[in-house]
Simulated scan of single mutants.
Amino acid sequence: MESKIQVIQENSDLDEEEARLALDLAEGDIEEALQMIDYVDKPFFTLQIKFETEGSNKVYGLINLVGNGKEGETLKLNVVTTYKRDLWNINVNANNKVFNQTIREVKEDSGTTYDLDVRNAFTDKLNSAQIFELFTNIKEECYPEVEGIIRDLLNPIFNKRVELEIGVSLLTKTQLNRKTTIGMSNDKKEKEEEEEKAETDETQLSIYLKSAPVISAVNGCKVKDLEVGDDILVRIVDKREVGRYLGDLISTERKGIAIGNITDIYFNEESGRYTIMLEFGPKIYGKLLAEGEIKIALVEELEEKIGNQGGSEDESNIKIELDIPWVLITLFVVLIIIVVFLLQFN
């Protein structure tokens, strides 16, 4: 076991804990474990900061930093400052997309000349070594050290002490694309697609997760009207260890619910049901069986729910509200009326 972990570490950037997880998920197979690297390696981090200056004429600010810790690279930096105290109510543990959207909204409504100063402090003074140090401290949960690095950048700007709160998370490449607004350039996408095409079927690891549709009787789309390329919401119901792990990895802000892209649809005339083939991420697939009249929730419903959440709301409050079929409600009301009517004649 230990020798296998050592082989995995020698052929990747995984630490011992990550290598052990990859080997467990691959059920002891080294080759398959090496292909799990993208799903267990978490080189990316998000750092969400809110701060206020001490004394009178306080300045409040939000900073969203997304970085590649192992490469010592800043991938995204968004900053806003204001004199409005309401900013201090923003939850730094909110969904990263929501936090970033909040910064954009505050910029439209207000802002100060300190925006540029704060941005320059992070871009000019936060070098690769410090980004790696931030990443290491986040990984080891040494949050006072993280706050110390941030204070050293902010204090000189305002010539006074700065109080702050931080929210952090570590991400795999799959989570980076799903949970932040980071997008790869077209050149990089094309390069990765070419590399994937060059791989042989023997070396690829394809995982199929057991899943079930998320029903939305009012706003959903009928199965028979779905098309290849549509993004739908599904529940990951796979009970295997690898299924549970990857289910959490690819799930949205509502645990257990993921976005699946339809790659193919088949209709079985004998059963009268459709088979829907899904892709959740690189080499992660799923399959659904459903009748044509069932309405399945589209990804637009999830985006609308998240978009309607305020930045001050906790991430756990972002929910997918499934519609109750109005037909069932109508039948229930009719049943009550019949019962009441019969009781009057007894």
Score class of each variant (00 low, 15 high):
L116I: 11
D117P: 04
G69R: 00
I37K: 15
F122L: 00
N261V: 05
T46A: 05
K197R: 15
P43N: 09
K210W: 05
K50A: 01
Y60W: 10
R235D: 14
N268L: 05
E300P: 04
G292D: 11
V214T: 08
Y39H: 11
D15E: 05
E193T: 08
K210A: 12
T172R: 02
E145P: 00
Q309D: 06
P144K: 11
E293G: 05
G148Q: 08
N91P: 00
K179W: 04
G183R: 15
F267L: 15
L116H: 06
F51D: 11
S316E: 14
N68Y: 00
I250R: 08
E133H: 07
I90A: 01
V92H: 01
T174C: 08
F44I: 05
Y83R: 14
Y60D: 03
G243E: 04
T112F: 08
E199K: 15
G229D: 07
F345S: 13
R244Y: 07
Q204V: 11
K319T: 10
P325I: 02
I63W: 01
Q6S: 11
V223D: 07
V237L: 10
N155R: 15
I63P: 01
K319Y: 06
V234C: 06
L288D: 08
I215A: 09
L25D: 02
V228L: 04
R161S: 12
G61N: 07
V339E: 13
I257M: 13
A129M: 13
R240S: 15
A121E: 02
R240Y: 03
N317T: 08
T181E: 15
R151W: 01
E140H: 12
I37L: 09
I257H: 05
G67A: 10
D187L: 13
V98F: 01
L209Y: 04
K197Y: 09
N268S: 11
F44K: 02
S185R: 09
L335C: 11
S271R: 14
E16C: 04
V334G: 03
K287L: 12
M277A: 09
L75R: 00
L278A: 06
A22P: 11
I207D: 04
G28R: 11
Y266M: 13
M277P: 00
